[in-house]
Simulated assay, not measured.
Amino acid sequence: MYTHILVPVDGSPEAENAVGHAVHLADAVDAAIHALYVAGAPSGDESKDRAVAERGRRALEDVRERAEEHGLTVDTTVADGEPAATIAEYADTTNADLIVMGTHGRDGVDRLLNGSVAERVGRHVSIPVMTIRLGDGEQSVKSPLQAQRIAREKLELAGHDDAVIESPSHQRTAWVVHATDERGEYNVHINSASGRAKIVQLG
């Protein structure tokens, strides 16, 4: 079974979705997560390069946070270079036995002409490349009961097993669930479209 799972990130929704799959799989098989952000060569535009670096930092921090919530070993790396070749090289360096990547899921002539980074990576490596289309595994949260269940699971993963959960409120694109325990107060923000949850400590 897998012991080292590589998940390349770029800050896109497709990559974020793939991270969720990688984390859940790693949790199931007790594998380590290796997250890679390929920044590419410097553009010569200082402000643009800073924005690229910040995007990578946020994407990698998100992976670290999500992996650590599950008690997983995780390392994060920024590298320069052509994406497919750099990902393949990093897979070899980390002894990865699986790569999980997001994809737009394009079909037809556009896909054949342009290909995708995931397809090019597959031609560079001998290990499996799992491609995840945006929407795979996502769950639409339509009811307060669903929101409460997700909030409870999120809080338990974070060690708040005894938290008292209040009725969820819906705010545009997210559910907010207030909770308290002996350590403090929290809001659990749950994306209505994807079901992704984040705990925010209050005070």
Rank of each mutant, 00 (worst) to 15 (best):
M1F: 04
T3N: 13
T3M: 05
I5E: 03
V7N: 02
V7H: 02
V9T: 10
S12P: 03
E16G: 06
N17P: 04
V19R: 00
G20C: 01
L25G: 00
A26G: 03
D27A: 15
D27F: 02
V29I: 15
D30E: 15
A31N: 02
A35C: 02
G40Y: 00
P42G: 00
P42N: 01
D45S: 07
K48H: 11
K48Q: 10
K48G: 02
A51L: 15
A53P: 07
G56A: 12
R57W: 07
E61P: 09
V63A: 07
H70K: 14
L72W: 02
L72R: 11
T76N: 09
T77P: 00
V78G: 05
D80C: 00
G81M: 01
G81L: 01
E82H: 05
E82I: 02
E82D: 12
P83E: 04
A88V: 08
A88N: 05
E89Y: 00
T93V: 08
T93P: 00
T94C: 12
N95R: 13
A96N: 00
L98T: 13
G102H: 06
H104V: 07
G105A: 08
G108K: 13
L112Y: 10
N114H: 13
S116L: 09
V117S: 06
G122M: 05
V125G: 03
I127T: 04
P128C: 04
I132Q: 01
R133P: 04
G135Y: 06
Q139R: 14
S140P: 01
S143H: 13
Q146D: 13
R149G: 06
R149T: 11
A151H: 08
A151I: 06
E156D: 14
A158R: 07
G159V: 04
V164F: 06
S169P: 03
S169Y: 12
R172V: 15
T173P: 11
W175D: 12
V177L: 11
A179K: 04
A179G: 06
T180L: 04
E185K: 10
N191F: 00
N191E: 15
S192K: 09
I199C: 05
V200R: 14
